[in-house]
Every structure is written in structure tokens, then in C-alpha cells.
């Protein structure tokens, strides 16, 4: 092929191949090995949460064998706990609850955080002043204590636990969103949108928000991890639906036997650790992929 004159059609194809910003982020993410490892682990956990209960059917609370049988004994992969329940079944069923609460609490967090942060950052003035004081109020509350109070007062059902976690952990999202909005609202394309007669609502959610998303996505990903930890903490303390198994609850109920049969506590603990670590790796990977300043490194 002649080097001097590349065929026109080839040139055009090149231009068309240039992908949308989202595709670019994805290819960037794929090049990050640790983030991909994290993503694979997250997918495995998700798989376990979705399909696990069909692979290990039956009531996880049912006694299947003698208590404290070591992992691998009698065909029970991870052994049995102090009530003779199969730890594998418990773990797989618990994954569902932990992931569900993690995701829905993070979603709630992001919804509250984005709304508060966006309105505060866009309108500024007394609106910002008021909303940020409210945010600070929630920020200075001891989070675990506050969510314990909510759960203790309104009952330990899954929706209430989700609500309790979401309502105490939105301030960081609100602050990040507000900071991004304060930066982006001064850019010329926002002024251009106003000159084009775009309404405030559309400017907030269609013009600024998509551009403010990268740090919020990262924050949200990390929020899933911390919500799982939060739920584990609450259920360890017994503030959970006693009819639903979750990782924190397994640890909590086996905690007296930590010295004799440490695996009953270690295994769900490892599950929490690995899942949260994997989510953090994905969050970090997203951060690198979404932050153009780090791209060239």
C-alpha cells in the first residue's frame, strides 16, 4: 500500500472506529490487571449469589451433620458450624443477602448523595449552605451507632437494614457530587447549554451529571464494599433478620467457638474480605480508567 496516500475509505473507517467515551474507559479498564482480577472475583461472587442457592438447595439453617466437622469431612466442602449446618450452603445463601444489601444500599446512597450534591453544587447560595449543613450533620453522627438505632427502633428487616445503611453513608457521595458540580457548572459548555435555552433540570441531569459521573461511579463502587461491611457489622451484633442468613450473621453466631473451630468464623470472614477487596480493586480500576490524568502513566 502506498504510504503517501492512504485510501480515503480507510481514513474514514479509522474515524468511525473511534469509540464513545464509555468504550474508551472499558478498554482502559481491561488493561488494568488487578482491576480485572477484582472484576473476575466480583463476577464469581455474583454467580454464587445468583445460582448458588440452586446448586445448594435446601434450608441453610437445617442441621445436616454433626457440629464442628472440619472442612472436607464427609463431603462437606467447608465443614459444619456449631449447629451442624453446612457452611457451604450458609455461605452461598449468605452471599445473596450480602450482595443484595450491598448493591441496594449503595444505590440508595448514590441516589440521595447525587440529588443533594447536584442541587447544592448547581444552585449555590443559600440552597448549598443549607444542604451542606444537613450533610455535615449526617457526617458527624457516628454511623454504625446511628444505623443501629434505626434498626433497633424500626425492626430488623432487610429493607430497613438497607435504609439504615443508605441513610448514614450518603454524605461522601453528596460532597463529591457537589465538588464536581461546582467545577463543571463554570465550564463553557454549561453556559452554552443555558444560551441554548436548556432548562435547569436538564442542565443538572443531562449536561452536568454525565460529566460528573466518573468520581461518583468510583465512590459508588467503593460504597458497595463498605455497605457489605456495614451489614456484616450489624448482623454480627445480631441486628439482622434472624430468618435470613448473611455472612456477618454466620460470624456472629459462631463467634464463641473461634478458638476451637476457627474455620467457622474465618471462612465467612474471608468471603467478606475477598469480596470487599475485589470491589475495591474494581473501584480503583474504574478510578484509573475514568481519570484521564492517570491514563498516560
Amino acid at each position: 500500500m502506498s504510504k503517501l496516500k492512504p485510501p480515503i475509505s480507510g481514513q474514514l473507517e479509522e474515524e468511525f472506529k473511534a469509540q464513545s467515551p464509555m468504550m474508551e474507559v472499558w478498554s482502559m479498564f481491561c488493561r488494568n490487571i488487578t482491576a480485572m482480577i477484582g472484576l473476575v472475583i466480583v463476577l464469581i461472587v455474583l454467580f454464587a449469589a445468583i445460582f448458588g442457592p440452586t446448586l445448594y438447595p435446601g434450608d441453610p439453617f437445617e442441621m445436616v451433620w454433626a457440629p464442628f466437622s472440619r472442612p472436607g469431612e464427609e463431603g462437606y466442602l467447608l465443614g459444619t458450624d456449631y449447629l451442624g449446618r453446612d457452611l457451604t450452603t450458609l455461605l452461598v445463601h449468605g452471599a445473596r443477602v450480602s450482595i443484595l444489601i450491598g448493591l441496594s444500599a449503595a444505590l440508595l446512597t448514590v441516589l440521595i448523595g447525587i440529588t443533594v450534591g447536584a442541587v447544592a453544587g448547581y444552585y449555590k447560595g443559600w440552597v448549598e449552605e443549607l444542604l451542606m449543613r444537613i450533610t455535615e450533620f449526617f457526617q458527624v453522627l457516628p454511623t454504625l451507632l446511628f444505623s443501629m438505632v434505626i434498626v433497633a427502633l424500626f425492626g430488623a428487616s432487610l429493607p430497613m437494614i438497607t435504609f439504615a445503611i443508605g441513610v448514614v453513608s450518603w454524605p461522601p457521595v453528596a460532597r463529591v457530587t457537589r465538588a464536581e458540580f461546582l467545577r463543571i457548572r463554570e465550564l463553557e459548555y454549561v453556559t452554552a447549554a443555558r444560551a441554548s435555552g436548556v432548562s435547569n433540570f436538564k442542565i443538572i441531569f443531562r449536561t452536568i451529571l454525565p460529566n460528573a459521573l466518573p468520581p461518583i461511579i468510583v465512590q459508588a463502587a467503593l460504597m458497595v464494599g463498605s455497605a457489605i461491611l456495614f451489614e456484616a457489622g450489624l448482623s454480627f451484633l445480631g441486628l439482622t433478620d434472624p430468618n435470613v442468613v448473611s455472612w456477618g450473621q454466620i460470624i456472629g453466631s459462631n463467634r464463641q467457638y473461634i478458638l476451637d473451630s476457627s474455620y467457622t468464623v474465618t471462612i465467612p470472614g474471608l468471603a467478606i474480605f475477598i469480596t470487599v477487596l475485589a470491589i475495591s480493586l474494581v473501584g480503583d480500576g474504574l478510578n484509573d480508567a475514568l481519570n484521564p490524568k492517570l491514563r498516560k502513566r
Partner: peptide, 21 residues
């Protein structure tokens, strides 16, 4: 809104005046 249609603006910085998304 109606009046804005008759008065439009060209911005200084072509790099920040177009929404990257």
C-alpha cells in the same frame, strides 16, 4: 426562551464549550 432563539453565542474556548459526552 423565544428571545434566546434570536440571540446566540459563540464561545471562546472550543475545547470547553462543547459537552464532551
Amino acid at each position: 426562551r423565544r428571545a434566546r432563539a434570536r440571540c446566540q453565542f459563540i464561545f471562546q474556548d472550543p475545547y470547553s464549550s462543547l459537552n464532551p459526552r
